[in-house]
């Protein structure tokens, strides 16, 4: 198991966003985290990435507890993420956006950059070549010098994933990757994520509302409702589960 969520609870004041949730993600799995709005999916993401501290319970990544690590330290351990509403660096080029992912991997110091040491030039060249390779993988190399905000929504989504991959992650968290995309863009994105999973040796944990997309993509899903786990298993079984249907459509029988 690459990621283990061990009995995690998160309270915001009196509200329990996540209640005693446990699940495990196997290496190279595409794992879906689904549930109606307010179910606690994004809260779970923020706990994994270290933005929130769990009220109780633990996140264990590759056998190592992530307690007390700051978000940027967790990224360096190998967990990268994308955001629900795309958050690219708006003033920067597509290439610079991806280069940010290499920030902690470029091996040169502050003084070396001021006096332009050979190592600075070598390292900058190395990370630029790597960034272009990643952009090329997503078919975005020709946009490298465009401003990120000038791209279409679908292209921005790809740059965001490329940027996350630049941090060299083992676990990639995608927060609603298909949101705001048309069916053909969604289809294309699904193909890319599956391909990247194999080529980059990734484990993917994704939040998604598009059940067709989830069905196509995920090896396993976890359904949350009001912070509680109501289903864990294969995606096609999830959509037949009475409790899941009740959570999404309302429980007509008990009214």
């Amino acid at each position: 198991m690459i990621l283990k969520i061990d009995n995690v609870t998160k309270n915001f004041g009196g509200v329990t966003a996540i209640k005693e949730t446990s699940f495990s993600v196997a290496p190279k799995e595409i794992f879906g985290l689904i549930g109606p709005n307010g179910a606690g999916k994004t809260t779970m993401f923020n706990i994994i990435t270290g933005n929130y501290e769990p009220s109780s319970g633990q996140v264990i990544f590759r056998g190592e507890p992530m307690d007390g690590l700051k978000p940027h330290q967790i990224v360096r351990k190998g967990i990268a993420r994308t955001f629900q509403n795309i958050r690219l660096f708006s003033s920067m080029s597509v290439l610079d956006n991806v280069l940010i992912g290499f920030d902690f991997q470029a091996r040169y110091g502050f003084l070396e950059s001021i006096v332009r040491f050979p190592r600075f030039i070598k390292e900058e060249k190395r990370i630029k070549v790597r960034s272009m390779e990643i952009l090329d993988y997503f078919g975005m190399a020709s946009f490298a010098h465009e401003k990120a905000v000038d791209l279409s929504y679908g292209q921005q989504r790809k740059v965001e994933i490329a940027r996350a991959l630049a941090t060299n992650p083992e676990l990639l968290l995608l927060d609603e990757p298909a949101a705001g995309m048309n069916p053909s863009e969604t289809e294309e994105l699904g193909v890319i994520i599956k391909k990247a999973r194999n080529d980059f040796d990734l484990t993917v944990l994704l939040i998604e509302h598009d059940m067709k997309f989830v069905n196509q993509m995920c090896d396993k899903v976890l359904v949350l409702d009001y912070g509680k786990t109501i289903f864990e298993g294969k995606p096609h079984e999830a959509i037949q589960d009475p409790e899941v249907i009740a959570a999404y459509l309302g429980d007509f029988h008990n009214d």
Binding site: L88, D96, D103, F110, R163, T167
Partner: peptide
């Protein structure tokens, strides 16, 4: 340099910069 890029990233979106390590 990477330091300047990090500074610009902080300006554009501090949380996203953190999420990039």
């Amino acid at each position: 340099s990477k330091f300047g890029r990090a500074m610009k990233a902080v300006r554009d979106d501090e949380d996203a910069a953190t999420a990039m390590g």
